[in-house]
């Protein structure tokens, strides 16, 4: 299962980024093997429509789920349309790794 976590740094021990469209980085991870890569968010500099631009970027990576602090109406419509599941950070989440762990334990709330 391929998941994306929004992050403030290009590493798994850095803090998560609560923003989706304007997140600093996306950590793309294979949940089973924990293999990951950090991707710069190309939408961060957009003056408008960052949510859709970020969603398109994620959709093109063929991921199964995204974990972030919140999803705007446009981004969630695009991600939902591509059958990508959206999950929200819980208060215990700090680093990307903590988000991954809680996600694998099924402890994160799904965004609907």
């Amino acid at each position: 299962m391929k998941i994306v976590i929004t992050a403030t740094k290009p590493q798994t021990d850095g803090l998560v980024d609560p923003r989706f469209g304007r997140a600093q980085y996306f950590i793309l991870m294979e949940a089973e093997t924990q293999q990951w890569e950090a991707l710069e968010n190309p939408a961060i500099a957009q003056s408008g429509g960052a949510g859709v631009a970020a969603a398109q970027f994620i959709i093109d990576k063929h991921v199964d789920a995204v974990v972030s602090g919140d999803f705007g109406p446009n981004a969630s419509r695009a991600l939902g349309g591509a059958d990508i599941k959206m999950f929200l950070f819980s208060p215990e989440v700090d680093t990307v790794q903590s988000a991954v762990d809680l996600f694998k334990q099924d402890k994160l709330q799904q965004f609907k």
Partner: peptide, 13 residues
């Protein structure tokens, strides 16, 4: 300039 809301969002964030 165009006030798209991006600068407002930046300040708030």
């Amino acid at each position: 300039r165009e006030n798209s809301g991006k600068l407002v969002t930046l300040v708030k964030q």
